[in-house]
């Protein structure tokens, strides 16, 4: 059992929890994820690690309440225990001294971006962060990321904070301003990552995306998380979750992530009744 030792409500549907998991906290690196199962009847879901503290032995995750498990998780409080919590899974981000790195986070994708920005700064990169959300309320970690970034740009779909528009508009502007960009990290909704990758492909800028397909075991056993990368089938759990954005078949990923949408609705409905 893994105890929740910290909780923050970032917006009505976005929560942060800090979970006591000493072994994982010793090993966790930017870009990795965990899989959790709340109780005996629960499903296993992957969540990217938003932060880790090896001294305290804790892992922080930030999630949006979109399905059965995340809604249930959102209702849990400090002192509650999660039945299973496994990790750190996946390959860590390849953190090097690239030069200038543009880190783009959309929605809850901002959460896993935070440790990556920190690691990139640690390697003395010049980090330009671009954060996007549907509206001001859904924008998270602005202050934290501002503190560790060299530049911060913000946009919202409705213009309630920062520039009105999309993260790709800001990236385009940076490119137009002839900023030398050595690498782009894009984490967020699949469609956002697709748009960013299409844009950077035109300018031949190395782009890394972090994928979030449906998973079960997280150890390469089931293949449920398979994605097509450069025409080859890869498992996001063991080969990823980060991949070269220019090679990912995002359209297939969007379809594969919808495969249980009807069952998800059914499951949510029943538990709420």
């Amino acid at each position: 059992m893994y105890e929740i030792v910290g909780k923050k409500v970032l917006s009505p549907s976005v929560k942060l929890i800090e979970v006591k998991a000493s072994l994982i906290a010793q090993k966790a690196k930017a870009g990795q994820f965990i899989i959790l199962r709340i109780n005996e009847n629960g499903e296993r879901i992957p969540l990217t690690i938003a932060d880790y503290n090896s001294k305290k032995g804790t892992i922080t995750i930030i999630f949006m309440e979109v399905g059965k498990t995340t809604k249930q998780l959102g209702k849990m409080n400090i002192g509650d225990k999660i039945l299973n919590f496994v990790g750190p899974l996946g390959v860590p981000s390849e953190i090097e001294k690239y030069g200038t790195a543009v880190c783009i986070g959309g929605g809850v994708g901002i959460a896993p971006l935070y440790p990556i920005i920190r690691a990139l700064k640690h390697k003395e990169n010049y980090v330009i962060s671009i954060l996007g959300a549907r509206n001001k309320k859904l924008l998270m970690l602005e202050k934290e990321i501002d503190e560790i970034s060299d530049e911060l740009h913000i946009c919202t779909d409705d213009g309630s904070k920062g520039q009105k528009g999309f993260v790709s508009d800001i990236l385009q502007k940076l490119i137009d301003e002839k900023k030398k960009i050595n690498v782009v990290w894009a984490i967020g909704p699949v469609i956002m990552m697709k748009v960013v990758a299409n844009l950077t492909l035109k300018y031949d800028i190395k782009t890394i995306v972090s994928l979030n397909p449906i998973m079960i075991d997280g150890t390469g056993m089931c293949g449920g998380c398979r994605v097509s990368v450069g025409g080859k089938t890869k498992f996001a759990c063991v080969d990823g979750p980060e991949f070269n954005g220019h090679l990912v078949d995002f359209d297939n990923l969007i379809l594969r992530n919808r495969r249980f949408i009807c069952q998800e609705e059914e499951s949510c409905k029943i538990k709420e009744d």
């Binding site: 499903e43 498990t69 495969r259 009807c262 069952q263 059914e266």
Partner: peptide, 10 residues
């Protein structure tokens, strides 16, 4: 045993 158990199969 879905939906008693959360994991679906279709």
């Amino acid at each position: 045993k879905f939906p008693e158990y959360d994991t679906p199969v279709k």
